[in-house]
Simulated assay, not measured.
Amino acid sequence: MKKMPRRLSSLSTRLIERLIPKMWLKRYEVFIYSAGINFLAVEYLVVSFLVGIIGALVVDLFLTKLYALAAFLALFLGMAFGYPYWKITKRIEEMEKMLPDAFFYLASSLRAGISFSEALEELTTAKFGALTEEFKKTVAEIKKGRSTVEALRAFAIRNRKSTVIYRSMMIIIEAIERGAPMSDILVFVGNDVREILRIKKERKASTGMQVMFFIVTSGFIGPLILGIVSQVMGAMSTGEITFPIDTIKTILLGFVVLQAIVSGLGIGVIREGKFSAGLKYSLLLVVMGVVIFQGASNFQIGGL
C-alpha cells in the first residue's frame, strides 16, 4: 500500500516532465525558489495538481461538475502561481522596507574606515530579515572569487522584480566602477529609497476608497443583485412565460466572474500601477462573487 502513492507521484512527475518544456520548468523552478519554496518545479506542480483535484472532488459532492472544474482551476492556479507570487511580493516588500537602513549601516561602516567588502560582510551579522540573507549570498560569492561588482549585479538580477532594489543596486554598482565616495552615495540612495517608499505608502492610502468601492461592488453588491434577479426570473416562469433558468444563471455567473477579474486588474493599476499586481485581487473577487451569487440565487426569499 505504501508503494502506491510513490508510484502515483513518480508517474505524475514523469507526465509533467514530458508535457512541459524543460525551459519552462527551469523558469518555474527559479520562480518558486525566489518564493522560498523548497520543492523541485515538477514536485510542486504535482502537489498543486493534487490540491486542485481534492478541492474539485469536494465541490462535486455538493454542486455540479462545472463548479468542480472551476474549483480545480482556482485551487491549482492559486497553489501553483498565486501562493508563490504572494510570498515573493511579501518578501520584496520586507526587503524594500529594510533597504534604507541597510544602506545607512553600510555607510556608517565605511566611515569607520573599513573597506566595502568588509562592510558587506559585517552587514550579514545585522538583522535585516530577507535582505540579510541576500547579502549573505553576495558575500559568499565574493569569497568564492567573484568580483564585488559582479556579486552585486547578481544581487540586483535576483531581485529584478523590485524596481526599487534593482535601480538602487545598479546605482551603487556604477558608483563603485567610477570610484565615487561610497558612503555619500549610500546615504543618498538610502534617502531616495525612503522617499519612494513614502510615496508608495501615500498612494495606497489615497486610493483606499476606490479599492473598497471595487471590492464592495464586484465582490458583494453586484453578485448579490444578479443572484436575486436570477431567482426572481425563476419565480416568474409560469405556464405561459418560461425562462431558460439554468442558461440565465450560467450567463449571469460568467458576468460576475468577468466583472471580478476586470475589477481586480483595475485595483492593481490604481494601487500599484501595473495589471499583474491585480491578479491576487481578481482571484479574491472571483471567489467572493461566486459565493455571494450562489448564496443569493439559492436562498429562498419569502413569496418567491
Results as ranks from 00 to 15, higher is better:
residue 202 E to G: 01
residue 179 G to S: 01
residue 144 K to H: 12
residue 187 V to T: 10
residue 237 S to V: 08
residue 207 T to Y: 09
residue 221 I to Y: 06
residue 160 R to C: 01
residue 231 Q to G: 15
residue 135 F to D: 03
residue 171 I to G: 04
residue 171 I to V: 13
residue 181 P to F: 12
residue 199 I to Q: 14
residue 151 A to V: 06
residue 214 F to I: 12
residue 222 G to S: 13
residue 170 M to P: 06
residue 171 I to E: 15
residue 206 S to I: 12
residue 231 Q to A: 15
residue 143 K to D: 02
residue 164 V to G: 02
residue 241 I to T: 13
residue 195 E to H: 08
residue 174 E to V: 05
residue 202 E to V: 00
residue 218 S to Y: 10
residue 169 M to A: 07
residue 206 S to K: 14
residue 138 T to A: 10
residue 231 Q to V: 04
residue 180 A to R: 03
residue 145 G to P: 05
residue 174 E to D: 08
residue 177 E to Y: 02
residue 160 R to Y: 03
residue 174 E to S: 14
residue 207 T to G: 11
residue 187 V to C: 01
residue 208 G to I: 11
residue 209 M to V: 06
residue 226 L to M: 14
residue 193 V to Y: 04
residue 220 F to Q: 07
residue 194 R to F: 03
residue 190 G to H: 08
residue 166 Y to P: 06
residue 242 T to M: 04
residue 234 G to V: 03
residue 239 G to R: 11
residue 236 M to W: 13
residue 235 A to L: 11
residue 216 V to E: 08
residue 187 V to H: 02
residue 168 S to F: 02
residue 185 I to W: 04
residue 230 S to T: 12
residue 163 T to L: 12
residue 137 K to N: 07
residue 144 K to A: 15
residue 168 S to G: 09
residue 232 V to R: 00
residue 184 D to V: 10
residue 213 F to K: 14
residue 203 R to V: 07
residue 172 I to S: 04
residue 179 G to P: 06
residue 178 R to K: 07
residue 170 M to N: 14
residue 172 I to C: 01
residue 231 Q to E: 14
residue 179 G to F: 03
residue 194 R to E: 14
residue 156 A to C: 01
residue 199 I to W: 04
residue 158 R to E: 01
residue 205 A to N: 10
residue 203 R to N: 14
residue 182 M to C: 00
residue 166 Y to N: 14
residue 153 R to W: 04
residue 140 A to T: 00
residue 199 I to F: 07
residue 160 R to W: 00
residue 242 T to N: 08
residue 178 R to W: 05
residue 238 T to L: 11
residue 134 E to T: 02
residue 141 E to I: 00
residue 210 Q to A: 11
residue 231 Q to C: 02
residue 172 I to W: 00
residue 163 T to V: 10
residue 136 K to V: 03
residue 178 R to S: 06
residue 220 F to M: 11
residue 147 S to R: 06
